[in-house]
Design a protein around this nucleic acid. Structure first.
Length: 408
DNA sequence: TCTGGGGTCCTAGGACCC
DNA sequence: TCTGGGGTCCTAGGACCC
């Protein structure tokens, strides 16, 4: 049966939200950045894009292009809040909403077409509600599958509404550059170009066998992409696969070389990871440490625990242990801690009294932190990292912007 | 004045077992 | 006068997405 899939993409989301909440930014070239230094452009307003400011640019580059650029530090809590309001609007038109990121969603409206008249009409209703309630615009793509819906929403920006019906597909894809397809990135484009494949039409006609030799399993998918075929279903949050990893990383304001400095940041990262894991009710057996040196060379090393863990202290100890086995030759620019091999706590063995006591302490710490933000308190053993210290860690201790990590 | 942070999926090679 | 072969788990890295 023919499906009707809708992809909704908010236009310049972070920048548009900022312009909406601060009228002084409206009509101005605005860029949202992660922090003040060692950051990149996360999103820019359409006014800034006129000057050539793009996502991913360095601050320096962006300022060169647009000297009057107004910078705003990302307010992830605000974006998350606005995002949830938008996602709620979608729910009024179908229960099949797949939230693919903070500013994008797929809707399978096949079952609600008769109720609202048409997909186009649903799109109009959604667009106008988002516009009047939140002052934001979005681009909507409507197509028989997710791949084409996503493509359609990209065709007209901002404030677009694009419909792709089956009869249009072959003609549309015939000369479309392969890199326009979601899932074909820089490297794949390069490789395909070397094979003489530039358009989706060419990709769709390419012998599957040859592509499989070059790309493995992905080869089969690539041919289907070239033909605009995508059997993937729209998955609501309940249908989606469980989270597989939980991690945090941060680029430090300044490179560091001392073990005790590394240890301090690892303690913070472990706390963020552990707290999130506990909130999800999950434990993991694999701890991965990521290090980026001053020359941007990046390594990751992992270690498997005998049993699944979720306490910050255990994650911290594992991360530090991995670090201690590496020889550090260059200053450290970025540190990351990740927990994987996850499973729900539910089926764990009954806890020993001592473990139970620690669990209760952990839970109460989490409650305090949830109320007052990260790092208000930490378990005692983490503090020994600094030698001594009070039970409450002063705000000055935490690097700027840390609270914004992970909210997005 | 260089280059963020959150993920998922895939691959290739090695260890280990039967 | 050798060195199969399938399966699983693990590790590290890379491509890709927003």
């Amino acid at each position: 049966m023919m499906r009707t899939i809708m992809h909704i993409d908010m236009n310049a989301f972070f920048a548009a939200v900022e312009q909406q909440s601060n009228p002084a930014l409206r009509g101005q070239p605005v860029a949202v950045v992660g922090s003040q230094q060692r950051t990149i452009i996360l999103t820019s307003s359409y006014e800034a894009r006129e000057y050539g400011v793009k996502t991913g640019m360095t601050l320096y580059e962006a300022r060169q292009k647009c000297p009057g650029l107004l910078l705003v530090k990302a307010n992830n809590r605000l974006y998350t809040h606005v995002s949830s309001q938008i996602m709620l609007i979608f729910q009024d038109y179908t229960p099949l909403v797949e939230i693919s990121s903070v500013d994008e969603a797929f809707l399978d409206v096949s079952g609600s077409l008769h109720y609202f008249g048409s997909a186009r009409r649903i799109a109009y209703l959604i667009k106008s509600r988002i516009k009047t309630r939140l002052g934001l615009t979005c681009s909507v793509g409507i197509a028989p599958n997710k791949l084409l819906a996503k493509l359609a929403s990209d065709l007209h920006k901002p404030d677009g509404l694009t419909l792709i019906v089956p009869e249009m597909v072959a003609n549309l894809l015939k000369d479309l550059p392969i890199e326009e397809i979601c899932g074909i990135g820089r490297k794949t484009t390069q490789k395909l170009n070397q094979l003489g494949v530039f358009s989706c039409g060419e990709l769709g006609r390419y012998p599957v066998k040859k592509l499989k030799r070059q790309f493995g399993i992905v080869g089969e998918k690539l041919v289907l992409m070239g033909r605009g075929i995508d059997p993937g279903a729209v998955l609501s949050p309940e249908q989606e696969a469980e989270v597989k990893t939980i991690g945090h990383s941060m680029t430090l304001r300044k490179d560091i070389s001392l073990r005790e400095d590394v240890a301090r940041f690892l303690a913070q990262l472990a706390e963020m990871v552990g707290r999130r894991a506990r909130r999800y009710g999950m434990s993991g057996r694999t701890v991965t440490l990521t290090i980026r040196h001053s020359d941007f060379s990046t390594y990751s090393r992992q270690q498997i625990q005998a049993t699944p863990i979720h306490r910050s202290e255990e994650i911290y100890r594992a991360a530090l242990h991995i670090f201690d086995r590496l020889l550090m030759t260059l200053p450290v620019r970025l540190l990351g801690v990740r927990l994987s091999n996850l499973q729900y706590l539910g089926q764990q063995l009954p806890l020993l009294p001592e473990e139970r006591r620690r669990e209760q302490l952990t839970e109460s710490l989490d409650r305090v932190n949830d109320r007052h933000g990260e790092f208000t308190v930490m378990s005692g053993s983490l503090l020994t990292v600094k030698g001594k210290g009070s039970y409450v860690i002063s705000p000055a201790w935490r690097p700027e912007g840390i609270r914004n990590i992970g909210v997005r």
